[in-house]
Structure formats: C-alpha cells, structure tokens
Design a protein around this nucleic acid. Sequence first.
DNA 1: GTATAAATGGAATATTTATTCCAATCAACT
DNA 2: AGTTGATTGGAATAAATATTCCATTTATAC
Lengths: 277, 277
Amino acid sequence: MPQPPQSYRELETLITAEYATLSKRLQQTARFVLDHPQEVALATVAKIAEQADVTPSTLIRLANSLGFKGFSEMQQLFRSRLVDELPNYTERIRAVRSATGETPDSTQLLWEFADANRAVLEQLPSRIDPESLEKALDIFEKAHAIHVMGARRSFMVASYMTYALAHVDKPALLVNGLGGMYGEQLRAMSQHDALLTISFSPYAEESQKACEDAHQRGLPSVVITDSNLSPLARFADVVFVVNEAEVKSFRSLTASLCLTQTLAIALGVRQDKKRKA
Amino acid sequence: MPQPPQSYRELETLITAEYATLSKRLQQTARFVLDHPQEVALATVAKIAEQADVTPSTLIRLANSLGFKGFSEMQQLFRSRLVDELPNYTERIRAVRSATGETPDSTQLLWEFADANRAVLEQLPSRIDPESLEKALDIFEKAHAIHVMGARRSFMVASYMTYALAHVDKPALLVNGLGGMYGEQLRAMSQHDALLTISFSPYAEESQKACEDAHQRGLPSVVITDSNLSPLARFADVVFVVNEAEVKSFRSLTASLCLTQTLAIALGVRQDKKRKA
DNA sequence: GTATAAATGGAATATTTATTCCAATCAACT
DNA sequence: AGTTGATTGGAATAAATATTCCATTTATAC
C-alpha cells in the first residue's frame, strides 16, 4: 500500500473498497472513522480510540494499512475536509437558490427543508414550559401504562413514542385503529393508565374522541398539538403547543418528534433514579 | 482576567474590546487570529506563530491575557467554531446546564436534543449528493408504485414516507409485516415498482432481505442508511447515508425524515411539471 | 486437537507540541 | 543620557500525544 489517498473523498472510497479485506477490529475502526469524521479530525488518538472502543494501536494500524505513514497523516485529510466543507449556512442556501433560478429543484428543496426544520428546533426548547414537562413526566411516571394516540400525519409520532417508551421499559400501547377498533382499544385503557394524544389541524375525529373519552373517565391526559385553541386542549391535563415547520404547504413533524423523544428519555432517566433510590 | 470567554463569539467581542489595551506585538497577534480563525483552529503554536510573524511565546501570552490558562484552551473555541456554526446556541445550552437546581433535567434534555438535531440538519444538505437525489427521483417517477420498507426504529420513517407519497398522488405501499406477512408483501411487488428501504444499525433482518430480494428480481431500489458500509448499501441503486443525532445513546431520526420529506415533495413537484407539459 | 500465523492490547518509548523562564531589548520618564 | 519597568525572543523544560514493540489472544489450516 505505497500510495496513500490525497483527499478525503479518495480516502472514503479506499476504505469502502478495502473494507472487506480488513480484520474485525480494523473494520470496526474503519466504520467509526467514516461515521464520525468530525471527531477524528479534532480529537487525539486516545480519545478517538476510546469512543470507537478500540485501542490506540488499532487506529495507527488502520492508518498504516491504508497507506499512511501514521495516524497523524490520515488525520490531515479529515481536517482538510472540515475546512473545505465549512459552510456559511445561509449563504449556501442563497447560493443554491440563486443558482437554480425559480425552479424548485430537489437539492434546493432539501436545503429549504433542512433550514426550516433547523429554525424550528432552535425555537422549540425556549417555547416549551419546563413546568409542563415535569407535570407530564409526573403523569407518565405514575401511569401503569401509556396509551399513545395519533392519526394520519401524527401517527408516525405516536408510533415513534410507543417505540421509545418500550425502550425505556415503560409499558406503552399504540392506539392504531387496526381493524377499525379505535373504540375497543380506547375502552381497554384502565383507570391507572394515561393517554398521550398527538393531533394537528385538521384534528382527526378519532383523536378528539380519544381525548374527550379519557377526560370523562378521569384518566390523566397529555396532548401535543399546534395551538392553544386546539379542540383537544381543553380536555388535557398538560398541553404542549409546538410550532412545526412548513415548506410548500407541507408541514413537518420534527419539533413534535424532538419533544416526544425528550419525554421518553426524561422518563427513562427518572425511572432509573427512582430504582436506584 | 479571571473569566475566559466561553464561546467564539464571546472571544471575538473580548478581543475587540481589549484590543486597544494590548501591547504592539499582542495587537499584531490578536489581529492575525481574528483574521485566520481556521488556521488557529487546526495548526500548532509554532506554525501559527510563524505565519503571524511572531514568536510562539507571544501566542501563549495573548491567550493568557485574554483569561485562558494556555493557548490550547483558547484554541478549543476556534475548533468549536469550525464544528458548529452557531456558538450562540451552544452557549445557551451551557447556560441552562450551569443554572443548577433551577432547571429540571427534562428541560436540559430538551435543549440537548433540539441542539443535536439542529446540528445534524445543518450538515445534512451538504452531505447529500445532488446526483443521488435526482437518480432516486428518476427511479420513483418511473415506478408504478413505491414499496416502503422500514422495521423497528425505521418503521416510523417508512410510515411517514408512505403518508407523504400518498399526498403527492404517488401510489405507495407500506411493507408493515402485519400478520407476519413480510414475505407475502414483498412478493407482491411488480416488475414496474420500486423499493425504498430505510434501515439503521443493527440492520433488521427483514430489511436486508427485502433489499436483497428487490436486487435479485432486478427491481430498482433506494436505500437510506447510516453508513457506506451498511449491508444494504451493496444491493441498492441509490444509497443515502445520513448522520443521525445521538443523545444519551438514543438516536434520533430527524435527518432521515427531512430527507424522505424532500424526496416525496420533490417527486410531487416533478409530477406536476410533467402533467403541465 | 495442535501448530502456525495473524491480530490485538497495552505498556514503553519517541516525538511532537505547549509552556515557562530568563536575558536582551525597547519605551517612558527624570 | 540614565534609570526603571514593561515587552519580547528564544532556549530550556514540561506536558501531551503518537508510535513502536512485544507478550498474549484469537483465528486458520492441517
């Protein structure tokens, strides 16, 4: 291997090509460096090795087996990539936009979506009331099981929440309406459970119904929606209002997802603490 | 000078403010570091000193006189600037974090998630190859119907994509494995269809199988995954590698969602154009 | 199963890089 | 011009970081 790559892109290609011929540890390492180029660019061998869960020697060996004289030489390529790619974000959007004129070509769309979602995420945490967060977590913690309801566009968020809750060992049930059994699934909620409903305009009939149902039966209920005036708001014990991004009249769900993810993991953290105590 | 700046922006302000009070050599050095932040982030003291036409000691002295313990500490700020473009934001996170007792853990988590996802979205568009985007759209446009496959964590993305495609009038089928019928659903793909698979480590068996299946039957196939070395990559006609955010070992799906959303809507735009023509 | 080669981890070492310190220089004031 | 105090350069030292080497483990072939 006398000819080391001269650019990051060449390096990427080389690693992909040679991957199969590498040993187990070297594969693990190769994979890590490709997946965390930023880390590799700036950290020390020891730090990177620790994060990749290998020994420093292995990193050196990887560099050597790719034709470099040592790790430092390889690191240079990762650094050059950082510098080359350093984008002034808004400038690049403008560049993409003007280069394509009026036509909404796919790359420009991608920039716009990414930017819109990014902006939404920037605002989200300061717009969520910390007390509401804690209150919602109280409800979830006390509940035996959490039923999660979301129809149409919101279904995805509900399904993700159910998945995440399961991963922090919280019994969670997705109200999916399979076989037209929304009613049956809702009736299955016990007095010790809680309901989380995600619903955006135009608020699906089923979601409203679920929320009202829980309210009448005295079940604790948390709602994620898009306005304080949402029909679901008045039935809930805790309401989260999230502002979603919109591009070309397509609304995204990034903020809601970020919030549900936080709820799930914060719940996990709480449960952990409680168990230890 | 007991309080060193915590972010690049703060540093910038401090240097500007203190500039007049600095000695001649220190002014020269300060000017250089502000004008060549990239250089300062990556080079060694000796190299920077040479370029700035001062001695290494001077650089150390500058760092010290700005409140840093040493040059390395100051360099960290230049590096962080290289990595994330919005020092304002990370500064706010640090503020939330350091306000001990006042802020509940859940709020801090929310800030961290929002930030991690934001950072990912910032990088996404420049890491997605425009050609791949166009190629994927070609495939989708030609396909009679698009089958969307995603298991476990990726299920949500698949389900969203199916929803979005339906909304741009593209026939889409979610391979959901309901009733254990993955095999049956996959066999139902016709020669004129296409497959979109979303899969992340640890790659679900079913997703790998779906992808391989399509490959063997000669169906066009697009994959969204987390590494060039993903087992699904070699079976696909187009591969999108997305870097997802990770907080407390919980991975998010923001980037994948943003990409799928873009694909769906870009497809919608294309179809619109074609219809008009 | 045993022998042989390849791969691995980790401590020892070499190298690079940052920092300190002091003598020399420069500037300000008497 | 001479004295004092701050500033500067550069060599000496300390710290950090990368690399090498070898004993041990793991895989491979017989």
